[in-house]
Design a protein around this nucleic acid. Structure first.
Lengths: 123, 123
DNA sequence: GAGCCTAATTACCAAAAGAAACCATCGAGG
DNA sequence: CCTCGATGGTTTCTTTTGGTAATTAGGCTC
């Protein structure tokens, strides 16, 4: 079982890591944890995402078993996306990242400005 | 509404999240937490990374104040990279992600195979 | 003085993201 | 009737990013 190091490219952990390193997936999962939601509503909620990327993100999340898709044969066909139990475990983990961002973003931004200022004068 | 929802694109949290959604940054930070390390050593450790991407990743991590760079005027100039205290807090958070991956990768892989099989026959 | 090791950049090409248009269906309204 | 709007997508095109390989620069070794 001890497959261990994600630093070798053939390690499956690396694949999952690659998958998770996706800003849209992180944002979508973060929204889905609040409850099932329809496609366009999701699109409006996640500011800046295109239909293509949302569709693509949802498809791969579904493929991974992190979200479930349910289509209703209503007037204009509605599709509802929901997070799965597995997806919830990931969303919980990712939430720590959001908390980190909220806690440290000011410091990071300050660092960036200091760096940029230094690079400008130091060059 | 300074902080709050990362779903609006102008939220600084979103910027940090974008930044973190980078597989190389995650892997590099994970290695740096074990101690300072030189450029080429890092490159050999992170399998599959190119010099360009490593250089680029390190530069942006340095800009964010997550790692520090120290050049030594040795024979062939050596450069050592180390994680900063701020970087450590992030690396710790990201470690939870690695743990998630190690715990759930089998399930995710199984889901993918089931999905792919279903799509093939079900389409 | 050719070759090598260091860290990093550059040029070039492939892949992915982004923007915007199009598709098909149906109900509402002019 | 015919267009409009809303539904969830896909397609097309452009831009941005990532990957490969070659190059740079300096000094040491052979």
């Amino acid at each position: 079982m001890n497959i261990a190091n994600p630093y070798s490219s053939n390690c499956p952990t690396r694949k999952v890591l690659d998958r998770v390193a996706d800003k849209w997936a992180v944002l979508v999962l973060g929204l889905l944890i609040e409850g099932p939601i329809r496609f366009n509503r999701l699109r409006r909620a996640v500011e800046g995402i295109s239909q293509k990327m949302l569709s693509q993100t949802l498809k791969s999340l579904e493929r991974d078993g992190l979200v479930s898709r349910k289509a209703f044969a209503t007037v204009p066909v509605t599709v509802e996306y929901a997070i799965t139990p597995l997806g919830q475990t990931l969303a919980t983990t990712l939430d720590a990242l959001r908390v980190w961002a909220e806690t440290h973003m000011e410091e990071v931004t300050a660092n960036q400005q200091r760096y940029d200022a230094g690079a400008k004068s130091g060059a």
